[in-house]
Design a protein around this nucleic acid. Sequence first.
DNA 1: TGCGCCAATGCTACACTATAACAATCCGCC
DNA 2: GGCGGATTGTTATAGTGTAGCATTGGCGCA
Lengths: 164, 164
Amino acid sequence: MAAQDAAQNALQAHQTHNHRACIEDALATARELCAARGVQLTPIREKVLQIVWRSHKPVGAYEVLDELSRSHKSARPPTVYRALDFLMGEGLIHKIESLNAYLGCVEAGAPHSGQFLICRHCGATEEIVDRKLETALEAAAKRTQFAAERKVVEISGLCARCAR
Amino acid sequence: MAAQDAAQNALQAHQTHNHRACIEDALATARELCAARGVQLTPIREKVLQIVWRSHKPVGAYEVLDELSRSHKSARPPTVYRALDFLMGEGLIHKIESLNAYLGCVEAGAPHSGQFLICRHCGATEEIVDRKLETALEAAAKRTQFAAERKVVEISGLCARCAR
DNA sequence: TGCGCCAATGCTACACTATAACAATCCGCC
DNA sequence: GGCGGATTGTTATAGTGTAGCATTGGCGCA
């Protein structure tokens, strides 16, 4: 079954690393970063960050809400969007515009717009940091004296595993 | 007033070229292309294309619907989305993911994902065709054996006029 | 002529994504 | 104790997009 294969691929992708550690790293980094900046990583915000990090697939806001509701019964859409906005503001997560979904940032702390490879089959999304691509973006903007602020780069297709 | 200035800038941007001709070119190209491909550029589809081309700002689907309703009273959301889907399928318009809005394609006929410079002040959005950027995108994907299909590149910031 | 097919449109309802606006609470500080 | 700012609670609603089935209209063909 194709859907099963896709799920399997995503699962294997997760198994190629210790995802529990992956989440813990992200949370630890977030705690340090927030402490250093004097902003509050409240329980709700931390929980939302954890939910977003549960997989390497972008997660929709209402999916976050469903999950968050288990521990915070009073959670409503604004609860989630506020937390997501905070986390984006601190550079801890990214929004994937072409999916209206959110993904943990692998370079938390370094302010940047992300660049993403999104597999349309298994959903796994990888954030890449490509200096040449960054340079090309800057150059393209500069060519028309455009002052770039945010750069959205989202490449959809098939990941190596799903393409075989 | 800032909003007035922005509107003024967008207006001037339009005045730097003959936008009426601009629209007519787009419609003529679309007609030729559809005829050559044996697909139907129906009145609704043509009207939607014209509405999208009314400005160089991305237009929301419901904005299109409002406008379309004047000539087609029975128009409903599906009417608009079907037309937009058709036009995207034929490469006549692009969707700007970060705005959930649609923009006429300046390179109709040549299949491509667009690259866009979006001014957050006046809203004017320019489609650029940057070969180096394209190459950098391909290279970035290839690096992880990712089979790229669609590439979303949307740079937000301030256009030269609004940055002054 | 009448039938069947297919593309396009009509139409209702609904799902999903996101925000406005105001109230309540908590907590540190004077 | 009370003030002020940040956070969360709460209700309602705005904005974006699709499912699903009915209807129409043109075109080929028996």
